[in-house]
């Protein structure tokens, strides 16, 4: 495992820690899209089916279980916790996320490396992850007040994917990995979706101003 990959995983983990911190200590999920969180549960459930079929390492298995457990936990808090659920920005979380699921299903059925259940579901999870942040980005744009933890959460989530791209470049150049169209293009699309957010996040950080996205 190279440094970029490790940093990417740690950023991903840290983003979840930041979100859980907001939910468990501030008891709020204001500005967090339940739709994006539900899409992540679907992403992890479909991608990590190989937990039952293939063993890579203790690290790999542990991380998969953490991502599955925390994503389900977050959705549970947002839907059912009696204090947290009242802070959910339901009226602003309006993105039609079913459309993203449908699009990813169609794309995975059309474009995949092999036509078997695990492979198609794995491909589906990559396509869905690429666009899963969209409801969250739309919600942020509608929020007049983006708190620091929410901004940091989205930034860390974007940084994770950017670091994964560096990891792929490293593996390609140093570890003889082949060019893989499906994960690479999905990953590039996913990272590109954050470009606008990164720009405003870094700008607000440099000017020590509160983060605000133009409508």
């Amino acid at each position: 495992m190279n440094l970029f990959r490790l940093l990417g995983d740690m950023t991903h983990l840290l983003s979840i820690v930041v979100l859980l911190l907001k939910i468990r200590t501030v008891k709020s999920c204001a500005g967090i899209s339940l739709k994006t969180q539900e899409l992540y549960v679907i992403v992890f459930l479909t991608r990590y089916l190989d937990l039952f079929t293939k063993y890579y390492s203790v690290y790999n298995t542990a991380m998969k279980l953490v991502f599955l457990g925390t994503s389900i936990g977050i959705v549970w808090y947002m839907r059912y916790h009696k204090v947290v659920k009242q802070t959910y920005s339901k009226d602003e979380d309006t993105f039609k996320h079913y459309f993203l699921i449908l699009l990813s299903i169609i794309l995975a059925l059309l474009i995949h490396r092999a036509f078997d259940v695990i492979e198609v579901l794995w491909t589906f999870s990559l396509y869905l992850e690429a666009v899963a942040i969209l409801p969250q980005l739309v919600l942020l744009q509608k929020s007049r007040n983006i708190d620091t933890l929410t901004g940091d959460y989205v930034f860390l989530l974007g940084a994770y994917r950017a670091l994964y791209i560096l990891n792929w470049v490293y593996r390609f150049l140093m570890e003889n990995h082949k060019f893989r169209w499906i994960p690479w293009i999905s990953g590039l699309v996913q990272t590109a979706l954050y470009a606008d957010f990164f720009y405003y996040y870094i700008k607000s950080w440099k000017n020590r101003e509160k983060l605000k996205l133009p409508a």
């Binding site: 995983d9 991502f67 994964y164």
Partner: peptide, 10 residues
């Protein structure tokens, strides 16, 4: 030869 897929990633 070990398979160079990307499924060892998360």
């Amino acid at each position: 030869l070990k398979e160079k897929s990307q499924k060892d990633e998360l």
